[in-house]
Amino acid sequence: MASKTKAAAAKGGEVLTYNQGTFRNSALVRQQTLAAYLFMLPALFFFVLFVVVPMVMCLVTSFFDYRMGKPLTFVGLAQYVKMFQDPTFLKALQNTFILVIVAVPAVTAFSLWVSSVVYQFSAFKRSFFRCIFYLPVVTGTVAVAVVWKWMFNKYTGLINYVLGATGIIHENISWLGDARFALGCIILILFTTSIGQPIVLYIAALGNVDPSLIDAAEVDGANNFQVFWQIKWPQIMPTTLYILVITTINTFQCYALIQLLTSGGPNHATDTIMYYIYYQAFKLNDYGYGDAMGVVLAIIIAVLSAIQFKVTGSGATD
């Protein structure tokens, strides 16, 4: 047992606590194992009870007709079939993809640009800009949403005033009440609340790029553009990948802004999957249908994350 674990340790290159000393008997191993489980227990308790169990329940109930005040009946894949014949779901799916396709590249590219400027500043200025761009995240969705709702207001909103005063528009626009503009407004606000974390990550990653590589490239006559693409970009690739994945996941889950700003309106123009799930589950009390849509959303996110890993990962090794 002890030699086996030691071999495993040598393979993993890590130091194990229980086979380094002079005692190598199984009683010590048993005691260490027991201690490890006891240390894991509290975290596992919360994780299993409040993450794993609901995940399993979500999957299981998606195969049932499960509504408030009705008996549970097994319906197989009927919820999934119903979903793809539901025009509102398809509209919500489309809107969600628009959000992701616009917001994820915009957030990633913009935060990379800001970070590559800001990380060269002095520590104080760097910290200042990092805080500024993180501010909308910390402020909280509700506070951000209510102030934007006011600014977008047709009559008392600042945006109509500024655009009117500068002659860009001639009559007030009902930004959040007009199907042509509402989704765009949501994307703008989503953008301001999404770039904080990527900027923090990119600034850290760019700070970790080996300066001697940059110096060497500059001595060899590389310009800024070449230094960026040849030296920095490959080194920050893991961070880019992580940012793409978390931004995709977060954008797919966009709910609070929709609920607070438009309630999915006008006429489902700003429904997202997440909003529609909770509309079905908590307004119409159709839990089974909501859970089935949740499963589909989870699958979409898992597939997209895998694709991003594959595409971006292989791009890095070229």
Partner: peptide, 27 residues
């Protein structure tokens, strides 16, 4: 520490983190 099930527990946690946590709010 090494203990039986360590790798499995950690993998499950990583997988759970990759899933949208709002999806489980109904259950």
């Amino acid at each position: 520490k090494r203990f039986p099930g360590r790798a499995l527990i950690f993998s499950i946690m990583i997988c759970a983190m990759a899933l949208p946590k709002q999806v489980i709010l109904i259950p």
